[in-house]
């Protein structure tokens, strides 16, 4: 097991390296640069600026220098915000995005698996039909529609929750709407997935055995069904988390949350090369790590998988 983990972690290095390389050259293919604006800068100033950020050197040298910096844990200065470096922005904003995304995933998992479980137990009843209809809505209606609707109902009309903002200006209440809207599509997907896999498990021979042993339904559900039935949900966690990260970019805009997602979008508009690179590296690290975690959980849940 330890060997496997070490091997997987070593495997992460080339993945991240390839991502950095592709990203580094691709963003420079786009027209314009960090210092191009509507009003052209005088050539001498532009030259000085480029010199300051080593952009006058050949691309391959810049690339090499960047790699060395990244290895040292330095993501470089922002090209747009003078005197700030990328590390500072990430340190400031990443915890907020992670809290938002993590909570959304947690809510989606708990509600989704719970709904799936109840639906499978009461299959073809009105509970099943209505929760699966809600799930279809959750899957098909995009985030940027769900969020304003929730905002309109709970913030504007009922006045229960703040419209936007973050912990510092509104307390924990500000989390409710963003987390709910961000988790909605994933809740829906997980509910449908787990309903199907719970049904599958419930029909299996080993559950018949468990019933024939006289076990209670609750014991059967949580001890005998849950482990096997959660496998498809676990495999969905990787894609779900990447979806939640991209979704949080939208949600952070709508709810005015000072998270990393905003910088991700803004930096692309600004051609802020180092900032783009920094956010891409952070996001890909998170995703790669999540996939790795999923594999570990999978092996823990299913004893038939061995890591040798």
């Amino acid at each position: 097991m330890t060997k496997y983990i070490i091997r997987r972690v070593l495997g992460l290095i080339p993945t991240i390296f390839i991502i950095i390389t592709i990203c580094f050259f691709f963003i420079r293919l786009a027209p314009g640069g960090p210092f191009s604006s509507e009003k052209k800068l005088p050539p001498q100033i532009l030259k000085n600026m480029q010199k300051k950020y080593h952009m006058d050197q050949p691309l391959i040298v810049q690339y090499g220098q960047y790699l060395v910096d990244v290895l040292r844990g330095d993501l470089g200065p922002s090209y747009k915000y003078k005197d700030y470096d990328v590390n500072y922005f990430i340190k400031q904003t990443l915890p907020k995005s992670m809290l938002l995304g993590g909570l959304a995933l947690l809510v989606a998992l708990i509600l989704g698996i719970g709904t799936g479980m109840i639906s499978s137990l009461k299959r073809n009843s009105w509970i099943d039909y209505s929760s699966m209809s809600v799930a279809v809505i959750g899957i098909s209606v995009p985030l940027f529609v769900i969020a304003p609707i929730l905002m309109y109902i709970f913030a504007m009309k009922l006045n229960w929750l703040p419209v936007a903002g973050w912990l510092d200006d509104g307390g924990a209440k500000t989390l409710v709407l963003p987390v709910l809207s961000l988790s909605a599509p994933y809740f829906a997907m997980i509910a449908r997935l787990s309903r199907a896999s719970f049904l599958d498990s419930l029909r299996s021979d080993y559950i018949r055995t468990a019933r024939a042993k006289g076990l209670k339904t609750s014991v059967i559900m949580f001890k005998h069904v849950l482990k096997g039935a959660s496998l498809p949900v676990v495999s969905y966690l990787g894609p779900a988390f990447s979806g939640i990260i991209t979704g949080s970019i939208v949600i952070e805009q709508i709810f005015r949350i000072p998270g990393l997602g905003r910088h991700f979008v803004q930096s692309a508009f600004n051609r802020d090369y180092t900032m783009i690179m920094g956010t891409v590296i952070v996001y890909s690290l998170i995703l790669v790590f999540m996939n790795f975690l999923v594999d570990i959980i999978y092996g823990y849940l299913d004893p038939r998988i061995s890591y040798s």
Partner: peptide, 17 residues
């Protein structure tokens, strides 16, 4: 009343010891 089934390959829960 104890019961045993036809297919021993699927009658035991593969996820539990």
């Amino acid at each position: 009343i104890g019961m045993i089934f036809q297919d021993p390959m699927t009658s035991l829960n593969p996820f539990l010891r």
